[in-house]
Write a protein that binds this DNA or RNA. Structure first.
Lengths: 157, 157
DNA sequence: ATGGGTGCAAACTGTTTGCAATCTG
DNA sequence: CAGATTGCAAACAGTTTGCACCCAT
């Protein structure tokens, strides 16, 4: 899933007893318009949505609330539309859960710099493992934690 | 590292300009006494430490504060003694960072059940990737998110 | 028309921080 | 001794929740 029409989203939601709403469409739409590899926190998402709305309609009324943002993120993660990333401290980040999940992260524990890398073999391992356990996989993440070159050099820590 | 004496811990800390304290020894000691695969949140760790102290000395004074627990956990993660797990919502969990990092997690997004599994090939992939990026790896985690058998059956969500 | 979804504001939870006192090297 | 570390309590940030209203089905 790299592109999903509003109608397709609606079907996906309705099939599970959920409803399609303007807010949910906007959230997914924004994620779909994001460049590959870009991820947002709940608050960044919220801020962006509001900014967009202001641009389009000059109305101050088109707000989506932060609570709804959180509720929507959870919903979409549980349906497999989004993936939740736990990178550096605190802020969780979200991104589209693309079909080929060969997109993982390398995080510096000292400065929080985050690098992305791909490794197609991981998805297979994940799929196989989950199958053995009877799980239906929605996401598969390999995260490496360490100290980056410049932090090692700076001998900080 | 499956066992580390107080002296070894002290050296490890001193080498980096940190100091060895009773609190740090207790924290690491507790993790070393934990059965393989067991992990604790900061608050569980804190509660356990206090309970242990009470048992041993009947003194109510042997408390380690929650702040210190947090500070110690961060320190030990950054040194590579512990690994931080982000499993279900909120609570982060910690466990000893054993040399063979072939110990990963499978989490149900619905009921939060967590399964562990090993897959030795992952560590190699991680090591190789980190090396390319010039990182010094401290931890390597593959986490699979999905829906477990019983949740799928219950058709909840 | 039903019951799922939303917004708001208030409540929470886990985590962090300033500071004075205390210990380690 | 100097400087790292601690405990305490207060502050925070991000996230969740109750409730009344609204809207998709």
């Amino acid at each position: 899933m790299t592109f999903l029409s509003d109608q397709a989203l609606k079907d996906k939601l309705n099939n599970r007893g959920y409803r399609s709403t303007a807010q949910r469409q906007k959230v997914l739409g924004l994620f779909m318009s994001l460049p590959q590899g870009e991820h947002l926190s709940a608050e960044e998402l919220h801020a962006t949505l509001i900014k967009n709305d202001l641009g389009e309609t000059a109305s101050v009324e088109n707000h989506i609330s932060l609570s709804t943002v959180y509720r929507t993120l959870h919903l979409m993660v549980s349906i497999g539309l989004l993936r939740e990333l736990e990178l550096a401290e605190g802020h969780k980040h979200y991104e589209l859960n693309r079909p080929l999940r060969d997109h993982h992260h390398l995080v510096c524990l000292n400065c929080n710099q985050t690098l992305e890398f791909s490794e197609s073999s991981i998805a297979d391992i994940g799929e196989k493992t989950a199958q053995n356990a009877g799980y239906q996989v929605l996401d598969c993440q390999l995260t490496l934690y360490g100290i980056c070159t410049s932090c090692t050099a700076k001998n900080s820590i």
